[in-house]
């Protein structure tokens, strides 16, 4: 592990005293303040069937604990490939998140990838929030223990058909600043993923089943690497799943 990633690991140790100082306030604050909050959820918990017969289980989950000023967040992303009986993606992020504006949070921390292939550890710096016109944005800069840098970007827009039937449109992309052949990352634009999901809030906003379509496409060297490994470069998926929040 390189020294900068140790620095990232130290981050929680630096910010923890801020939280505990917060808890030292007097009793009146305890009795009248909402204090620290927590939440666990899965924005995506779904099964994907591709037009080429590929089957995937995909989970994008997140848990947080913290105050308005500082939250700790664990983000999990996993892709289980039915045909290969293997985890294509296992990504754990541990970040600290602080507000930087009315609508935006900065986050910093560590990302650990442990899929079936080689592992990677990254330092993460990100920005997440709500852009004008109700676009939810999440973008991060990653620097791996191999010294490779990449940037991802996610946007989501929700269209209310009714107050319970909701169409959400998502767009996701990743650009690598350098090649990491070992894990199939080419330099430049790696992929785009676009999704359209129709959900229904069945139990509050805690359980919302959905169906949808997802289009995935790989580009440039990344596409070549995938082809070389016998994978596809463009897929259409039908998805069925649920959004979950506790």
């Amino acid at each position: 592990m390189k020294s900068w990633s140790r620095g990232v690991l130290l981050l929680p140790l630096i910010v923890a005293p801020v939280l505990s100082a917060h808890a030292d306030k007097d009793r009146a604050v305890d009795a009248h303040s909402a204090g620290a909050q927590w939440g666990i959820g899965a924005e995506k918990f779904e099964y994907r069937y591709s037009d080429t017969g590929e089957e995937l289980a995909v989970v994008e989950g997140d848990a947080f604990y913290g105050s308005d000023e500082l939250k700790f967040r664990w983000l999990f992303e996993g892709e289980w490939e039915e045909t290969h009986d293997a985890w294509e993606t296992v990504e754990n992020q541990f970040v600290a998140q602080v507000p930087v504006d009315d609508f935006w949070d900065a986050k910093g921390g560590i990302r650990i990838d442990t899929p079936k292939g080689p592992d990677r550890v990254y330092g993460v710096l990100g920005l997440t929030g709500l852009a004008p016109y109700w676009f939810e944005i999440d973008t991060n800069l990653y620097l791996s223990d191999e010294g490779d840098a990449s940037v991802d970007f996610e946007a989501e827009y929700e269209l209310l058909i009714t107050n319970y039937w909701i169409v959400s449109a998502t767009f996701e992309t990743m650009v690598a600043l350098s090649e990491d052949r070992e894990i199939g990352v080419g330099k430049g634009l790696n992929y785009t993923e676009m999704g359209l999901r129709l959900s229904y809030d069945l139990i509050d906003r805690a359980f919302s089943p959905y169906v949808g379509v997802v289009h995935e496409r790989k580009f440039g060297d990344t596409a070549d690497f995938a082809e070389g490994d016998g994978g596809s470069t463009e897929d259409w998926f039908a998805v069925i799943g649920a959004r979950i929040a506790f």
Binding site: Q37, G39, I161, T162, N163, D204, R205, A245
Partner: peptide
């Protein structure tokens, strides 16, 4: 309720303007 509002301020708002 407090936790839901903190997680998502519009958690309980079912009067939002729709496509209709």
């Amino acid at each position: 309720i407090m936790r839901n509002l903190k997680t998502s301020a519009d958690y309980y708002n079912r009067q939002q303007q729709t496509v209709g």
